[in-house]
């Protein structure tokens, strides 16, 4: 059994997210069905499951993009379900999208600058009269630093839509980080990446987690990557949570094996 140890050691840390009975119906379909789990501070929490299991919907519930039919999610004890997405972002939960949703016509730099919105305050008149220069400079520096981090600084002026698939995913991570989150949700960050890139991604996520002191939730289909990266893994099948635990144990769970074999 692999020890559930983060790079910060096995120090006992609190619970960041508590999902209780999260449910979402679309007409007759129950995309997420009575899902409850806890996420601990600082861990990398994997979310796996066959196609259509409800993983993305779960992220949408957690970030306010889709209101739940019932159930709640609490972030550090504060209920976030029912809040608008931008409020949840302001609390410190940020995400990337499975079907990338960058501001395609805007430059990479601008994509990242926009996401600093909740951490800045210049209003209409401050902007028009140029009294927010110091803040603007901070936004600019921060954006460049984040682009550096994901290795896109030399293409800062290009439209996000022109980037390769992998680069767009990296840019989305930079954009998500620009909101200065405490919890980062990554929806299939490795999709469309080759094996070498996937390896780099694992290291990169670890590095980011350490550097920004994050809790990371990651949806990923590629099992070796999940096993390698995650401290704990949850498995969804037909909207239901069928297993949570450390990766090796989950991998041996008969229900999980059944779900994956049955799903093929």
């Amino acid at each position: 059994m692999t020890a559930v140890t983060t790079e910060r050691g096995t120090v006992e840390r609190g619970t960041v997210l508590e999902a209780r009975g999260l449910t979402r119906r679309f007409g007759g379909l129950v995309a997420v069905n009575d899902v409850s789990f806890d996420v601990r501070e600082g861990e990398i929490f994997g979310l796996i499951g066959p196609n259509g299991a409800g993983k993305t919907t779960l992220f949408n519930l957690m970030t306010g993009l889709t209101p739940p039919s019932s159930g709640t999610l609490a972030y550090r004890g504060q209920k976030v379900t029912g809040l608008a997405p931008h409020r949840i972002a302001a609390l410190g939960i940020s995400r990337t999208f499975q079907n990338i949703r960058l501001f395609r016509a805007l430059s990479a730099l601008e994509n990242v600058k926009i996401a600093q919105h909740v951490r800045t305050r210049a209003g209409l008149w401050a902007g028009v009269f140029g009294t927010s220069r110091a803040e603007e400079r901070r936004v600019e520096d921060q954006a460049w630093a984040l682009l550096d981090l994901v290795g896109l600084a030399d293409r800062a002026g290009e439209s996000a839509g022109n980037f390769s698939y992998g680069d767009q995913r990296r840019l989305e991570i930079a954009r998500a980080l620009a909101t200065e989150p405490r919890v980062l949700l990554l929806d299939e960050p490795a999709a469309g990446m080759n094996t070498a890139e996937k390896g780099q991604l694992t290291a990169f996520i670890r590095e980011v987690r350490a550097r920004f002191d994050l809790t990371v939730l990651v949806i990923e289909h590629h099992v070796p990557l999940v096993m390698d990266l995650c401290d704990r893994v949850a498995v969804l099948n037909f909207g239901q949570l069928i297993a949570v635990g450390d990766p090796a144990a989950v991998q041996r769970d008969p229900k999980v094996i059944e779900a994956y074999l049955g799903g093929e």
Partner: peptide
């Protein structure tokens, strides 16, 4: 501009 490009993504990135 963020809202013009993608309202939902803008919302998710903290722009009301």
């Amino acid at each position: 501009r963020a809202i013009r490009e993608d309202e939902l993504a803008a919302d998710a990135m903290g722009v009301p």
